[in-house]
């Protein structure tokens, strides 16, 4: 860390020619002036955040206490919107749907991503090509791909055709509860496996090889190495993937909305509203039924849910980290003598 001695040779504008670190400043005005540029630099974010981040959040809270259709006058109703929410079976249904879809998509997706990460790690030739191929689904328009998958999962679509070709009955992909959730989950898995696989891959490749050398030298089998060395090392990356998948999964909107989008707002979420996610319900209530206050209340409930879930995830995945400290457990007994 270099320090700079006092005066500058070249005539520099203002006093910011002096280093921001460790320099003495005689005039108090000068000291604050020194800080102006960094404050200026970070201010765009805070200004924008104040106007378009913080204010809307506060306004959203305010709105959730009103009954308003966006056009007429606002009517103050206190906590009424939240009370309706608690009694709203469609809302609870949407929460159930969201969690089911989240579970059905996140678990297989993470598992597959892990497997693919291992495979990618073992494959060296054409590495970039593979990575690109796996990542592309994440890049494409969700609207377009939902339209494609919607056609694949239609009653007479490709999926059922393939099933029938192997002698299995077609599935009611878009007209049954399980079918709808499966279709949406498959879309989500398809989109995110590559992304998470690459993240896991990076995590894998960052593991120092000495750990594996040590494991091999100590005679650990593949399985032991896998579970006692690899997975714990990957834990931060897995945690990152789980949390981001959770936050994403609880906010699913596009797949759900586009799949059943039609002229008739009553079809939102599909038959029986089995595809209605929380955010879709929020959008429906706010911009189809024009109940802005109710939509705001749903937004806050979603926030509470995400916070809760993220915390639970964190505790679950990182809490058991404490168990890994005695890592010599993979050694079978005292065979190697210690």
């Amino acid at each position: 860390m270099a320090t700079v001695v006092g005066a500058d040779p070249a005539p520099a504008a203002g006093s910011d020619a002096r280093t921001a670190r460790g320099a003495n400043n005689r005039a108090p005005r000068g000291r604050w002036r020194r800080h102006v540029p960094p404050y200026l630099a970070i201010s765009p974010y805070y200004v924008l955040f104040a106007a378009f981040g913080a204010f809307p959040v506060g306004f959203s809270l305010y709105l959730s206490f009103q009954d308003w259709d966006g056009i007429g006058d606002m009517r103050f109703v206190g906590l009424q919107q939240y009370r309706w929410l608690l009694r709203d079976s469609v809302f609870w249904h949407s929460i159930l749907n969201t969690f089911e879809i989240w579970f059905m998509s996140t678990v297989p997706m993470l598992f597959l991503a892990l497997v693919i990460a291992f495979l990618l790690n073992a494959q060296v030739r054409h590495a970039t090509a593979y990575r690109v191929a796996y990542f592309i689904p994440n890049v494409t328009s969700m609207v377009a791909m939902t339209i494609v998958f919607g056609s694949v999962f239609a009653q007479a679509g490709l999926a059922n055709s393939l099933l029938k070709a192997i002698g299995v009955d077609g599935v009611n992909w878009l007209t049954s509860s399980l079918g709808i959730k499966s279709a949406i989950s498959i879309m989500i898995i398809w989109r995110w496996v590559g992304y998470n696989a690459l993240i896991f891959l990076a995590g894998l490749q960052a593991i120092p090889t000495e750990l594996f050398e040590a494991a091999r030298v100590d005679g650990a089998s593949s399985r032991q190495t896998l579970f006692r060395v690899l997975v714990p090392q990957l834990r931060p990356v897995i945690l990152f993937a789980v949390i981001t998948s959770t936050i994403n999964g609880l906010q699913i909107f596009t797949e759900s909305q586009v799949l059943f989008y039609s002229d008739d707002p009553g079809t939102t979420g599909g038959p029986g509203q089995e595809g209605l996610t929380i955010v879709l319900y929020l959008w429906q209530k706010a911009f189809n039924d024009h109940q802005f206050g109710y939509g705001a209340a749903i937004g806050w409930s979603l926030f509470a849910l995400i916070a809760l879930f993220a915390i639970i995830n964190w505790r679950l995945v990182s809490g058991s980290e404490r168990d890994d400290r005695p890592r010599i457990a993979w050694r079978k007994g005292a065979r190697n003598g210690r």
């Binding site: 966006g70 056009i71 002229d263 707002p265």
Partner: peptide, 14 residues
């Protein structure tokens, strides 16, 4: 106007 006409009109008004 395609889609949910009424909703789009009301949204514009809002």
């Amino acid at each position: 106007i395609a889609g949910d006409y009424k909703s789009k009109l009301r949204t514009s008004m809002a």
